[in-house]
Amino acid sequence: MARILIADDEDSMRLLVARAVAMDGHETVTAADGAEALDILTGDARGFDLLLTDIKMPIMDGIALALAAARDFPNLVILLMTGFADQRERASGLNAIVHDVVTKPFSVADIRAAVAGALTARQTGKR
Protein backbone atom coordinates (compact mmCIF):
# COMPACT_ATOMS: atom_id res chain seq x y z
CA MET A 1 0.00 0.00 0.00
CA ALA A 2 0.99 3.63 -0.38
CA ARG A 3 2.46 6.15 2.04
CA ILE A 4 0.45 9.34 1.97
CA LEU A 5 1.26 12.71 3.51
CA ILE A 6 -1.84 14.76 4.34
CA ALA A 7 -1.51 18.49 5.01
CA ASP A 8 -4.51 20.50 6.22
CA ASP A 9 -4.76 23.19 8.88
CA GLU A 10 -8.18 22.00 10.04
CA ASP A 11 -7.85 19.20 12.61
CA SER A 12 -11.22 17.65 11.75
CA MET A 13 -10.49 17.59 8.01
CA ARG A 14 -7.02 16.11 8.56
CA LEU A 15 -8.52 13.36 10.72
CA LEU A 16 -11.37 12.65 8.29
CA VAL A 17 -9.03 12.37 5.31
CA ALA A 18 -6.50 10.25 7.21
CA ARG A 19 -9.21 7.83 8.35
CA ALA A 20 -10.76 7.65 4.87
CA VAL A 21 -7.41 6.92 3.22
CA ALA A 22 -6.46 4.39 5.89
CA MET A 23 -9.65 2.45 5.09
CA ASP A 24 -7.89 1.33 1.91
CA GLY A 25 -4.83 0.17 3.83
CA HIS A 26 -2.60 3.17 3.13
CA GLU A 27 -0.15 4.50 5.69
CA THR A 28 -0.82 8.13 6.54
CA VAL A 29 1.27 10.89 8.06
CA THR A 30 -0.32 14.26 8.78
CA ALA A 31 0.85 17.86 8.97
CA ALA A 32 -0.96 20.99 10.15
CA ASP A 33 0.48 23.31 7.48
CA GLY A 34 2.67 23.37 4.40
CA ALA A 35 5.89 24.15 6.25
CA GLU A 36 5.44 21.16 8.55
CA ALA A 37 4.60 18.97 5.56
CA LEU A 38 7.74 20.08 3.72
CA ASP A 39 9.82 19.31 6.81
CA ILE A 40 8.29 15.83 6.94
CA LEU A 41 8.89 15.26 3.22
CA THR A 42 12.54 16.24 3.42
CA GLY A 43 13.21 14.47 6.72
CA ASP A 44 11.56 11.12 6.05
CA ALA A 45 13.99 8.71 4.41
CA ARG A 46 11.24 6.24 3.44
CA GLY A 47 9.55 8.77 1.17
CA PHE A 48 5.93 9.17 0.16
CA ASP A 49 3.85 8.07 -2.79
CA LEU A 50 1.27 10.87 -2.58
CA LEU A 51 0.95 14.35 -1.13
CA LEU A 52 -2.64 15.35 -0.39
CA THR A 53 -2.75 18.99 0.66
CA ASP A 54 -5.24 21.75 1.28
CA ILE A 55 -4.51 24.89 -0.71
CA LYS A 56 -5.41 27.53 1.87
CA MET A 57 -3.23 27.10 4.97
CA PRO A 58 -1.19 29.42 7.19
CA ILE A 59 2.62 29.65 7.10
CA MET A 60 2.98 27.89 3.72
CA ASP A 61 -0.04 27.29 1.52
CA GLY A 62 -0.65 24.16 -0.52
CA ILE A 63 0.43 25.71 -3.81
CA ALA A 64 3.82 26.75 -2.42
CA LEU A 65 4.11 23.28 -0.90
CA ALA A 66 3.20 21.63 -4.22
CA LEU A 67 5.80 23.69 -6.09
CA ALA A 68 8.54 22.82 -3.57
CA ALA A 69 7.53 19.15 -3.45
CA ALA A 70 7.43 18.83 -7.26
CA ARG A 71 10.88 20.41 -7.50
CA ASP A 72 12.48 18.23 -4.82
CA PHE A 73 10.46 15.01 -5.27
CA PRO A 74 9.60 14.72 -8.99
CA ASN A 75 8.03 11.25 -8.62
CA LEU A 76 5.63 12.36 -5.90
CA VAL A 77 2.00 12.56 -7.00
CA ILE A 78 0.23 15.66 -5.69
CA LEU A 79 -3.49 16.11 -5.02
CA LEU A 80 -4.82 19.47 -3.86
CA MET A 81 -7.99 20.09 -1.84
CA THR A 82 -9.95 23.32 -1.56
CA GLY A 83 -13.35 24.69 -0.71
CA PHE A 84 -12.68 28.05 -2.37
CA ALA A 85 -13.31 28.77 -6.05
CA ASP A 86 -10.55 31.38 -6.21
CA GLN A 87 -8.03 28.88 -4.82
CA ARG A 88 -9.11 26.28 -7.37
CA GLU A 89 -8.51 28.89 -10.05
CA ARG A 90 -5.00 29.55 -8.67
CA ALA A 91 -4.27 25.84 -8.98
CA SER A 92 -5.44 25.60 -12.58
CA GLY A 93 -2.01 26.63 -13.87
CA LEU A 94 -0.32 23.75 -12.06
CA ASN A 95 -1.52 20.93 -14.31
CA ALA A 96 2.06 19.86 -15.01
CA ILE A 97 2.75 19.09 -11.36
CA VAL A 98 -0.67 18.47 -9.78
CA HIS A 99 -2.73 15.39 -10.56
CA ASP A 100 -6.08 16.93 -9.59
CA VAL A 101 -7.90 19.35 -7.29
CA VAL A 102 -10.56 17.85 -5.03
CA THR A 103 -13.35 20.27 -4.14
CA LYS A 104 -14.52 20.49 -0.53
CA PRO A 105 -16.86 19.45 0.87
CA PHE A 106 -16.40 15.90 -0.31
CA SER A 107 -17.58 12.52 0.90
CA VAL A 108 -15.35 9.75 2.21
CA ALA A 109 -16.05 7.88 -1.04
CA ASP A 110 -15.00 10.94 -3.08
CA ILE A 111 -11.63 11.33 -1.38
CA ARG A 112 -10.94 7.59 -1.49
CA ALA A 113 -11.69 7.59 -5.24
CA ALA A 114 -9.48 10.63 -5.82
CA VAL A 115 -6.59 9.00 -3.95
CA ALA A 116 -7.06 5.72 -5.85
CA GLY A 117 -7.05 7.60 -9.15
CA ALA A 118 -3.91 9.51 -8.25
CA LEU A 119 -2.09 6.35 -7.17
CA THR A 120 -3.13 4.58 -10.38
CA ALA A 121 -1.77 7.53 -12.37
CA ARG A 122 1.50 7.23 -10.44
CA GLN A 123 1.82 3.58 -11.43
CA THR A 124 1.19 4.35 -15.10
CA GLY A 125 3.58 7.29 -15.06
CA LYS A 126 0.94 9.96 -15.65
CA ARG A 127 0.47 12.97 -13.38
Rank of each mutant, 00 (worst) to 15 (best):
A64R: 07
E36Y: 02
G43P: 00
D54C: 04
L50G: 09
L52K: 10
T53R: 02
I55T: 09
E36D: 14
L65W: 06
L51A: 05
A64L: 10
G43N: 10
A45C: 00
I55K: 10
L41F: 04
A45N: 06
T53Q: 04
D44K: 00
G43A: 05
I40Q: 09
E36A: 11
I63L: 15
L50S: 12
D54T: 05
I59T: 15
I63M: 13
L51Q: 08
G43W: 04
K56S: 14
I55S: 02
G62I: 09
L51N: 13
L38T: 01
P58D: 01
D39G: 14
G47M: 02
L38S: 05
T42Y: 11
L51Y: 07
L52D: 11
L65H: 03
I59S: 15
I55L: 05
G47C: 11
A64Y: 00
P58C: 09
A64D: 14
D61P: 12
K56L: 14
R46G: 14
R46C: 12
L50D: 04
G62Q: 00
R46E: 14
I40H: 07
L50Q: 08
L41A: 00
G43C: 06
T53H: 03
R46K: 15
D54S: 11
I55P: 11
A64W: 01
I40M: 12
G62E: 07
I40Y: 12
D49V: 10
A45L: 07
D39R: 14
I59C: 13
A37W: 07
E36N: 08
I55F: 11
E36T: 13
D61G: 14
D49L: 08
I40G: 06
G62W: 05
T53D: 01
F48E: 03
L50M: 12
F48Q: 02
L41C: 03
T53V: 06
T42C: 14
A37F: 12
M57K: 02
D61W: 09
L52T: 00
A45R: 01
L51C: 08
A37Q: 01
T53M: 03
D61N: 15
L41H: 05
T42D: 15
E36P: 00
I40N: 11
A37K: 02
I40C: 08
L52R: 03
L38H: 12
G47R: 09
E36S: 12
T53K: 03
T42I: 13
F48K: 04
I63Y: 01
L65E: 06
D61K: 07
G47F: 01
G43D: 02
D44E: 08
D61F: 10
L52M: 11
A64P: 02
D49E: 09
L51S: 03
E36F: 05
L51T: 08
I59N: 14
D54P: 10
A45H: 02
K56W: 13
P58Q: 09
I59W: 13
M60D: 05
P58G: 11
F48W: 06
L50C: 08
L65Q: 01
T53N: 03
I40E: 03
G43S: 05
T53P: 01
M60G: 10
